[in-house]
C-alpha cells in the first residue's frame, strides 16, 4: 500500500492512517521531490512542471520496490498523480484510493472546479508576493514549538524544509493542471473519498471524478475540510477498509 501526500504536506499526514493497515499490508511512505525530507537537489524545474514528472517518480518507486498489483492511496493532487501512474503502468495498482481528488481546479464551461481563473491567479500572486509572510511566519511555528519539542523536530523535517520556490512551483502545477481527460483511461478499481465543506475539492468535483472513472466507488464522508486523513482518520480508515474488502454495496450506500 503506497501512500502519497498532497500539496502542503508530506508523509506525516498519513500518521493516523497507515498504522491501521500495517499488519495486513506492506506500507510505503514517501515525500515528493521538493517536499519534506526529500533531496531538494533532485528538483528539476522542467520535470516537475507537470504531474507526469511526479507520476514518473511513483512508477520509479514501485519498480525499485518491485511492486505490482498494489494499492495506491493519494491525497489531493496525489490522487491524480496515482491515476496517471496507473494509466502508464496498469499492473502497478489494482486499487486507487483518491482522497479529495480534483482533475481541474478552475471552473470551465459546464465543469465546476471550485475556483474561477481569477481566484487561482490571486492565489499564485499571493505566493509570489507573500514570500516572507509565508515562509518566515511558518518558521517559528515549526522551529519554536517549545511545548512539544519531539514534534518540532519531526515537523522541522517537513514544513519548514519546504523550499518556498519549490512550494510556489508545486502550487502552480497543482492548481493549473487539467487532467480531466486522464480519468476516462483509469482501469484500476477506484475509491473517491470526499469531505463535506471542502473548499479545495468541493463535493461536485468528487462526484465528477466518480462519474468519469468507470470502475469507481464514491464515499461522501461526514468529515469537513480537505484532510479527512488528519481530521477524521477513523472514518477514513473505515471507508478504505470497506472498499478494500470488496464491500462495494456498502460503499455505494453512502454515495449520492
Amino acid at each position: 500500500m503506497v501512500f502519497a501526500h498532497g500539496f502542503g504536506c508530506d508523509q506525516n499526514m498519513w500518521r493516523f492512517v497507515w498504522p491501521a493497515f500495517a499488519e495486513e499490508y506492506r506500507i510505503v511512505l514517501f515525500d515528493h521531490v521538493g517536499c519534506g525530507g526529500s533531496d531538494l537537489r533532485a528538483y528539476d524545474i522542467g520535470k516537475y512542471a507537470s504531474l507526469e514528472g511526479y507520476a514518473d517518480d511513483v512508477i520509479a518507486i514501485c519498480r525499485e520496490l518491485d511492486l505490482t498489483h498494489s494499492i495506491f492511496v493519494g491525497h489531493s493532487v496525489s490522487a491524480m498523480i496515482g491515476a496517471i501512474a496507473s494509466i502508464q503502468v496498469p499492473e502497478l495498482f489494482d486499487e486507487l484510493i483518491m482522497i479529495g481528488p480534483s482533475p481541474r481546479y478552475i471552473d470551465d464551461d459546464d465543469y465546476t472546479g471550485g475556483f474561477s481563473e481569477a481566484q487561482v491567479h490571486e492565489l499564485l500572486e499571493f505566493l509570489d508576493d507573500n514570500h516572507m509572510g509565508w515562509s518566515q511566519a511558518m518558521a517559528p511555528v515549526i522551529m519554536g514549538n517549545p511545548d512539544r519539542p519531539e514534534l518540532g523536530q519531526e515537523l522541522a523535517n517537513s514544513f519548514c524544509m519546504t523550499d518556498p520556490e519549490i512550494a510556489k512551483r508545486f502550487a502552480r502545477v497543482t492548481f493549473l493542471s487539467d487532467n480531466r481527460a486522464d480519468l476516462d483511461r483509469v482501469t484500476a478499481r477506484a475509491l473517491v473519498l470526499q469531505c463535506h465543506e471542502d473548499v479545495i475539492a468541493p463535493p461536485a468535483v468528487g462526484a465528477y471524478v466518480h462519474q468519469r472513472v468507470s470502475n469507481s466507488a464514491f464515499v461522501l464522508l461526514n468529515a469537513t475540510g480537505h484532510c479527512p486523513n488528519l481530521s477524521a482518520p477513523e472514518e477514513t480508515i473505515l471507508a478504505m477498509k470497506i472498499f478494500l474488502a470488496g464491500e462495494r454495496s456498502a460503499a455505494q450506500n453512502v454515495g449520492p
Binding site: G8, E122, L123, G225
Partner: peptide
C-alpha cells in the same frame, strides 16, 4: 482565496498534528 487554500492544505493539518 489564498488563505482558504493554505489554511486547508497547511495550517489545518499542522494544528491537527
Amino acid at each position: 482565496i489564498a488563505g482558504k487554500m493554505y489554511y486547508e492544505t497547511h495550517f489545518a493539518p499542522l494544528m491537527r498534528m
